[in-house]
Design a protein around this nucleic acid. Sequence first.
DNA 1: TTTAAAATAATAGTATTACTATCTATTTTA
DNA 2: TAAAATAGATAGTAATACTATTATTTTAAA
Lengths: 225, 225
Amino acid sequence: MSVAIKIALNEGLYIKDPQDSELGRNIIEHSIDLIDELGIEAFTFKKLSIRINSTEASIYRYFLNKHLLLLYLVNWYWEWVQYLIQINSRNVTDSKERLKIIIRSIVSASRENPMVGYVNESKLQKIVISDGMKVYHTKDVDDENSKGFFRSYKNLALTISQVISDVNPNFKYPYALATNLFEMANNHLFFAHHLPKLTDISIQANVYDEMIEMLEYYVDKLLTE
Amino acid sequence: MSVAIKIALNEGLYIKDPQDSELGRNIIEHSIDLIDELGIEAFTFKKLSIRINSTEASIYRYFLNKHLLLLYLVNWYWEWVQYLIQINSRNVTDSKERLKIIIRSIVSASRENPMVGYVNESKLQKIVISDGMKVYHTKDVDDENSKGFFRSYKNLALTISQVISDVNPNFKYPYALATNLFEMANNHLFFAHHLPKLTDISIQANVYDEMIEMLEYYVDKLLTE
DNA sequence: TTTAAAATAATAGTATTACTATCTATTTTA
DNA sequence: TAAAATAGATAGTAATACTATTATTTTAAA
């Protein structure tokens, strides 16, 4: 008997829980591969069905459309980062130290041990970096927000903002800094690879270490009075 | 005889310069309206052609596809912000003051006097906030970057980074801060309206003033030694 | 072990999208 | 006043984003 770890995600994200069946887990595993290869624009359920030797109709029984599938994957990532923060800062009481752990978790989530076999966290991070923000930059944000589809991100922002406020209770923008740390990490990893003139991070050295250094510098400067 | 102001944009962005004809200017004007109404996903050349009483084929003579049209519009915005910074900081020598003007230009570009009649800068800013980052988050970034399609953004980042370095020559991340200011302004205006839990900016008060205050606080904290 | 229910596969079909091609009418310019 | 450029009208294609139906296989319960 294998111990099945299940990530709790908003039930509105899927039609049938993909974690509960072979086909469902196959959809997750190979959609990550395929979106990573093609980008979300060129990715289709048809192509995925061919890849996994199934049919379009079968995939539609799990997800309403590719936008919801992407949203499911991004939510998974948000939960994964939240989880990493929790286990990595388990025994840490100093809030400054906790913030450093948060930064490390945000930047190199992909280098941590995987949680479940069928999710390649490294590719998932690449997807989040490239296409993550597309899940809320739509005309349906308000509707989807009211259904709780962004709750994992909000929870993550809340967690981070609380540590920020612990470090400096007078800091006026804990939520903005929380999301900014997350978005900056993703954005500048992308810029470093594709639009280097838009960042100071270089891929010559270790991108992750540079990113961590920059974000640590940022929070230190912003939170020290 | 009317004085036609012409914005210089990379020639690879269009097939035929839309600024040079009535139909071209119509495409610009009404694509801004329609993308603002529908979002870039639901926007099609077919719908635009109906709106302007023309045909799909005619629009295709100006732009290769809707992605290139969006890229054209976003480039216009980047040029427009650059232009605003230039004219608003004309006679300003103090670099701290210049940086404040930059922040104001980034945040409330839409409230400035329009440059040309057929471009609604206010709607254009809304498009950039909602869909702007989609122009480079594609599988074609590297190819399009090599064609110079993001040069206006890089120029803008350069301009801002130079002022940042003037304020504090020891600051290690002038480019990252430059793009971050721009992205933060857009992101948090979006969050304030749609995902308020992800920001500290509220639409209760004057969003623009709050944004300016936050960004000024950020640069002051980061650049003061 | 049988049988019913549930899940999946196979197949087909539709409306829309994202184009390309061609031909004609009109306007501009040389 | 003819050539060239521009725009409009129309048609057509392959792919996308689905929905629907029926057949087959798997699983779980009686």
